[in-house]
């Protein structure tokens, strides 16, 4: 659905993006991550046809963004957290205006405005002036305008920033629902939200693409070993730390104290070590009860920070 090929964007001597390439499949929800100034906004602006790239090409729904900007914009919904919506307009009038300029489907702008208001829980706010709404409701109006005409592609820039937790949950649920029929490019600073909503993530830093993959694959690729959390029960107060630390491939061991009738340990092992097998053999040999054995997942946050730290390291 979206094909970005070697896209660069420069503003004078400032290189906001350098040869960034990725693709997004139809119906996919993909997260765009990066620290401030990484080039996320520039990427979003290029995808929304606000500005063309300096070099490279962007194809959306098979159309070249440089040549068919109007056709692409007709199929795209764009939400920007930092942009305010006409504060002097009423919610319904604004959405009717958007539906009108986007070429509302059969039924006309009024019907389309009513549909998106219903979808975003704005029905009771239809007559209110946008400037008088709370931040949360303004976010909803922003989301509602992006949903007008059921776009094939949704570009959402920080859609849950600055709103209360209850509304965050509702908006996330809405995005999940929208992902059933639209391709979503989603940018957020809340990494747990990205890992919850997106199947794959794009990580960019200082205008360069660092990675495009699933959070799990990125975490595994970055990890220099594997981590496990075990809870072991040993009869007669046997020493646990010594034999556990002596297992082949174990790099470090952290005693986490009593838990669930046993003792909990965090074990970091070499990637090639078969820790489960070694641990079972050890427990059998010494008569221990293995209460729990769970691999530690790398959170997207860990992955993101590791990736940025690796970038900063002098080569």
């Amino acid at each position: 659905m979206i094909q970005v090929d070697s896209v660069s964007k420069s503003f004078g001597s400032v290189h906001a993006l350098r040869r960034v390439s990725f693709s997004v499949e139809q119906g996919e929800v993909i997260g765009l991550l990066g620290p401030n100034g990484a080039g996320k906004t520039t990427m979003m602006r290029i995808l929304s046809c606000f500005m063309p790239p300096s070099s490279g090409s962007v194809r959306i729904a098979g159309l070249d963004a440089a040549r068919h900007s109007l056709a692409i914009r007709a199929r795209t919904g764009y939400f920007l957290e930092r942009v305010s919506i006409y504060p002097d307009m009423r919610v319904a009038s604004f959405l009717e205006f958007v539906a009108g300029v986007k070429g509302a489907p059969a039924g006309g702008p009024k019907k389309e405005a009513a549909r998106v208001m219903e979808l975003c829980g704005l029905g009771h706010m239809a007559k209110r002036i946008i400037g008088n709404l709370s931040k949360g409701y303004q976010q909803r109006v922003g989301l509602a305008q992006a949903l007008v005409n059921q776009p094939d592609i949704l570009l959402l820039d920080e859609p849950t920033a600055g709103i209360d937790p209850e509304q965050v949950v509702e908006i996330r649920a809405l995005i999940k629902e929208l992902a059933q029929r639209s391709t979503v490019v989603f940018s957020s600073h809340i990494l747990s939200e990205v890992s919850q909503l997106c199947r794959r993530v794009i990580i960019i830093n200082r205008g360069e693409l660092l990675a495009v993959d699933t959070p799990q694959a990125l975490g595994a690729a970055l990890a220099d070993g594997r981590g496990f959390r075990v809870v072991v029960e040993a009869p007669g107060g046997q020493d646990l730390a010594g034999p556990l630390g002596a297992m082949p491939g174990v790099r470090s061991l952290e005693d986490q104290g009593e838990e669930a009738g046993g003792r909990a340990f965090l074990i970091q092992a070499a990637r090639e070590a078969d820790l489960a097998r070694s641990l079972c053999a050890l427990a059998f040999e010494r008569g221990w009860v293995l209460r729990r054995l769970e691999p530690l997942e790398h959170s997207l946050e860990d992955t993101f920070l590791k990736m940025l730290a690796r970038e900063k390291r002098p080569s």
Partner: peptide, 10 residues
């Protein structure tokens, strides 16, 4: 910032 929003429409 509404200019950016306006230009995102066709």
């Amino acid at each position: 910032g509404t200019f950016e929003l306006l230009t995102s429409y066709p």
